[in-house]
Nucleic acid binder design. Structure first.
Length: 479
RNA sequence: GGCCCCAUCGUCUAGCGGUUAGGACGCAUGGUUCUCAUCCAUGUAACAGCGGUUCGAUUCCGCUUGGGGCUACCA
């Protein structure tokens, strides 16, 4: 029996601008999980038709990040538009030959003036159609004279272009307000409109899932499909990601580059989980998703129409959740680069113990260094910090001395958090004072901080010698 | 200006004619704890407005208002 080819093919088609926008990552994610959910294919295409925005290494960077997030594409090699220039020209020529497109020789100045006039007349500001009906003679003369030209698509002047958007339902545009779009630039390169339509057709894309900012140009694309006699794909326009002030998520108001989030210590799985939930929900109360469970739970029908504010608060919370789920070893490895950057060195075993003490506190990996730097070097602090509630300096020093004496009794090989805790608690319980009268000064002496991991935890990691040294120092400065 | 899209707590959202309008983040309070965090419990806070349709509208329709996007030889 012949195998039926997969019907569902989605794609991610970024332009290589040098960094990956989180909004683009979400688009890629939705396309990927939609394809996988439906046993379909996920294709990648690089839309590098704007030479002026060319960035060296951007494409490689893009692929690296997608792979890092495990958004693996099925077309190898991937499609790259700059390698297909002849094809776009051929199709543009075909439209010209069929009188569905035309040469336009208008200068930028004339276009600017025309636009200003139409703006004043409160009319749509699109191209005024000056070159739409040039005679064969005029075209020949202009071409002969070597005048620069673009190719414009001839939009129908009447009728409606309607389509069903999977997210928005029926959408309708009046053809007469549609601009005669440039499809081939004067340098011979295609614009997005031409290239994406041709490529989506050739890749046999079944579903175009992209940002809502593309919604207004979708009728132009559909008309292009019709001009070529092709079946348009199904469209689904995603709600936009928003700044806190509800404008389109932009660099001005914080990080938007995926690389920056990673650098700041967000885990890829947390970031992915977070953006999944911006504009989509599973219909249940589940909030934690790995890639596999996303695929299982996903459906396009549950995507929202309204834009979603990118709320760092919730991202931080989610990231904390994922950090807490890591093993000490995983976390230590993830934190290593941050220590290296700070010039702090220690072996992995020690690092494991150190990061474990802050695992429940940090929200981002980048916080680990400042949160744990007191392990690396004895902290400076105000002696007042050592004093707990109603105690005075003298009593505090006395308690610390008693504590030190007890700790002295613990042998090097018994020096573990658990054992220290058991011994010291036993000792304190034998006294008339409370836990805080001993433990606060001890913890403060070891960490130099108001808030920190517990004293036994710190002592266990610090080791016997360093612990006793810090206690001595505390007693000293209390005098 | 023109066109298109959108509208439930501060934020992400559930709801698909009859609900005490639910959950999560945040925030607040309490418990656990020497502290902070974690964890647990409780609380806080929303259907933009006006008209219809209907026995009944958060839900369906229209208008208003508000927000956003597009309007490039950028994608």
């Amino acid at each position: 029996m012949p195998v039926k080819p997969p019907k569902i093919i989605a794609r991610f088609a970024p332009s290589p601008t040098g960094f990956l926008h989180v909004g683009s990552l979400r688009t890629a994610l939705y396309n990927y999980i939609f394809a996988k959910k439906n046993n379909g294919l996920f294709y990648l295409r690089v839309e590098d038709t704007d030479q002026s925005r060319k960035v060296e290494g951007a494409k490689e960077n893009l692929l690296k990040i997608l792979a890092f997030f495990n958004l693996n594409w099925d077309n190898k090699p991937i499609m790259i538009q700059s390698e297909r220039l002849d094809l776009y020209k051929k199709y543009a020529q075909q439209l010209i030959d069929e009188n569905k497109a035309y040469y336009c020789f208008c200068s930028e100045e004339r276009l600017g003036e025309s636009k200003a006039i139409r703006q004043r007349q409160k009319l749509p500001t699109g191209y005024d159609g000056q070159c739409r009906n040039l005679s064969a003679e005029e075209i020949k003369n202009n071409l002969g004279a070597g005048r620069s030209y673009v190719i414009r698509f001839k939009m129908p002047k009447t009728g409606l272009t309607e389509f069903i958007d999977l997210i928005r339902g029926q959408v309708s545009f009046d053809n007469k307000i549609l601009d005669d779009q440039i499809i081939l630039k004067s340098n011979g390169w295609p614009t997005y409109h031409l290239a994406s339509v041709i490529d989506d057709h050739e890749m046999e894309i079944s579903h175009v899932i992209r940002g809502e900012d593309w919604l207004p140009s979708t009728p132009k694309h559909i008309l292009l499909y019709q001009a070529f006699g092709w079946e348009p794909p199904i469209f689904a326009h995603l709600p936009l990601l928003l700044n806190p002030d509800h404008s389109k998520l932009s660099k001005r108001q914080g990080d938007v580059a995926v690389e920056d989030f990673l650098k700041n210590g967000y885990l890829p799985e947390a970031l992915l989980n977070f953006i999944l939930l911006l504009g989509w929900n599973p219909g249940t109360n589940q909030e934690i998703f790995d890639l596999q469970s996303m695929i299982e739970a996903f459906s396009l029908e549950k995507i929202n129409k309204a834009g979603a504010v990118f709320d760092l608060n919730k991202l931080d919370w989610l990231n904390g959740e994922y950090i807490r789920k890591k093993s000490a070893e995983e976390l230590a490895k993830l934190c290593q680069p941050y220590y290296a950057e700070a010039g702090l060195k220690t072996d992995l075993k020690n690092l494991k113990a150190i990061v474990a003490t802050e695992q429940s506190r940090i929200k981002k990996l980048s916080e680990i260094v400042s949160a744990t730097e007191f392990f690396f070097k004895a902290p400076d602090y105000d002696p007042q910090l050592l004093i707990w509630k109603k105690l005075n300096a003298k009593e505090t020093a006395k308690n610390l001395a008693a504590l030190a004496e007890e700790l002295e009794k613990i042998k090097e090989k018994e020096w573990t958090e658990k054992f220290i805790e058991a011994e010291i608690k036993k000792f304190i319980e034998g006294n008339k004072q409370g836990m805080g009268d001993y433990l606060w000064p001890m913890r403060a002496a070891l960490s130099g901080r108001k808030a920190s991991p517990g004293p036994f935890e710190i002592a266990g990691v610090l080791g016997r010698e360093e612990t006793l040294k810090r206690l001595e120092k505390a007693i000293e400065i209390l005098k």
